[in-house]
Amino acid sequence: MKKFLPFLVLIFSLSVSNPSQADNLLMARTNLNFPEAMLKLQDSIRNHGYTVSRVQRVDIGLTHSGYVTDKYRVVFFGKADLVTRLSNDYPKLIPYLPFKIAIFAEGDDTLIIAANPLQLTDKTYPELKPVMKKVEKDMLEIFQTMRNNEE
């Protein structure tokens, strides 16, 4: 009987654990307007210990081509030592550094989009996985903060 106990406990814990959605593309909608959402996003990024390195306009000329919005930016962020270490040790990641989140207006709402940092990992560098897991965790929290608008 004793032999089965750990097994049962295992099954038990597996069945209670909540499968998290490991999506490749992280997306969120907030009903904050664009300037408010932008402030909140940058605050949330900083609260997770990252530096916002640049906010890049993407919407040059958008209004001329039929878009109702000209509110489209990419927010770049990172940690100096992490970005240096990753770009030195894993040159394949260079085009994807620093990290980024796109933010744009849709009507009165604002949407944010990012690629899941886990998609940068593969089997060649198993040691990279925990690093990206941590960045993923931070980004999932940032996205969740953006969804919750009651403050």
Binding site: L25, V58, S65, Y67, Y72, V74, I101, A102, I113
Partner: peptide, 12 residues
């Protein structure tokens, strides 16, 4: 962007 606005993530 007209085909899929999400692709702005990888632009410019």
């Amino acid at each position: 962007l007209a085909v899929d606005p999400r692709v702005g993530l990888f632009l410019p």
